[in-house]
């Protein structure tokens, strides 16, 4: 039979471990769900139906909407990353925003912090002829991070503003947590 002292010490250790786990879970939950406001951006509810990937985060600000989420293990080629436009069409969830998306032009190389990939601008035909969106896919090894910026992305200054926001702490902290702090 265990002594009373052993039981008390073991219980304290167990309580400490459970508390540590609960705190860690809370911090993770808090990073995910905290109502962010940052430099004119406000977090909104993820608007898309559930699919095979974890829910992303969505923000609204400066006349734009930004949707971003990691897709772990989804890169077509872990060495090259995203290098062609068809992959941007396929992986960025642009079809969630508008199934009738049409590319406006060829895409271009893009870098968000140290993640490199490709971006492309689309016309959102379901929303009217003037509605545009920029889809972005960058990768780290085999993991993708995809983002969509909806609004007047023909305006280069607005596009830059959205990219700066994607590189800002609120987005990066969350992405890093999702990617295992890569």
């Amino acid at each position: 039979m265990l002594s009373r002292r052993t039981i008390v010490y073991a219980s304290l250790a167990a309580v400490f471990m459970i508390g540590l786990g609960a705190f860690s879970t809370y911090v993770r939950w808090d990073v995910t769900h905290r109502p962010w406001e940052y430099d004119g951006w406000r977090r909104i509810t993820w608007p898309f139906p559930r699919d095979g990937w974890d829910e992303g985060q969505a923000w609204r600000g400066h006349g734009l909407e930004v949707y971003v989420r990691p897709k772990l293990g989804f890169c077509g080629n872990c060495d090259t990353g995203v290098v062609d436009d068809s992959e941007v069409d396929r992986v960025t969830d642009i079809d969630l925003v508008d199934p009738l998306f049409t590319p406006v032009a060829s895409g271009q190389r893009i870098q968000i912090t140290d993640l490199v990939g490709r971006s492309r601008i689309y016309k959102l035909r379901s929303r009217g002829s003037s509605q545009l969106a920029e889809a972005i896919a960058v990768s780290y090894r085999c993991d993708l991070v995809v983002a969509i910026v909806v609004g007047n992305v023909a305006d280069e200054e607005l596009r830059r503003k959205a990219r700066r926001f994607l590189e800002a702490d609120p987005v990066q902290d969350w992405i890093n947590a999702q990617l295992g702090e890569k």
């Binding site: 265990l2 039981i7 073991a10 219980s11 250790a13 167990a14 309580v15 459970i18």
Partner: peptide, 13 residues
Amino acid sequence: MMRLVLFIASLPL
């Protein structure tokens, strides 16, 4: 109560 304590204590095991 004692069973609960023993169960919690056995988690690391």
